[in-house]
């Protein structure tokens, strides 16, 4: 999977792409923990290039969201599409994490 960080003021914008599955989710978690270690706590994760997420990907997101919150920050998600969005909805993650339709909405709301 692809994971890229861009800073926008206090916000850490994380662009994810490709597949977030059993094999790649640990890589996502490791990168995010590194950024948290460097002091980032306010994350906006942009899903518009993500093709696939499984429960392993959701678990990693939850671990990272809890860490960010424990440090006074937050992780919000935006631009979910197709079955990725459906996976968020049926898993209950759309209610557990703040989810926005677009990056614009996420950066205004986050």
């Amino acid at each position: 999977m692809d994971i890229t960080l861009n800073k926008s003021g206090q916000l850490a914008i994380v662009l994810v792409g490709g597949r977030m599955d059993t094999l790649s989710a640990p890589e996502f978690e490791k990168k995010m923990q590194e950024w948290i270690g460097q002091g980032e706590t306010r994350f906006v994760v942009d899903f518009h290039n993500l093709d696939y997420i499984s429960s392993a990907g959701l678990r990693s997101l939850m671990v990272v969201a809890k860490d960010a919150r424990a440090r006074g920050g937050e992780l919000v998600c935006c631009a979910l599409k197709g079955v990725v969005k459906q996976v968020f909805d049926v898993s209950g993650f759309s209610a557990l994490l703040p989810v926005y339709g677009s990056m614009d909405d996420a950066t205004k709301g986050g």
Partner: peptide, 18 residues
Amino acid sequence: SLDRSEAGGLGIHLVRKL
């Protein structure tokens, strides 16, 4: 809630729903 939710147990739930 996010603070209380368990990290596991989701996979089969997703399969059953989808």
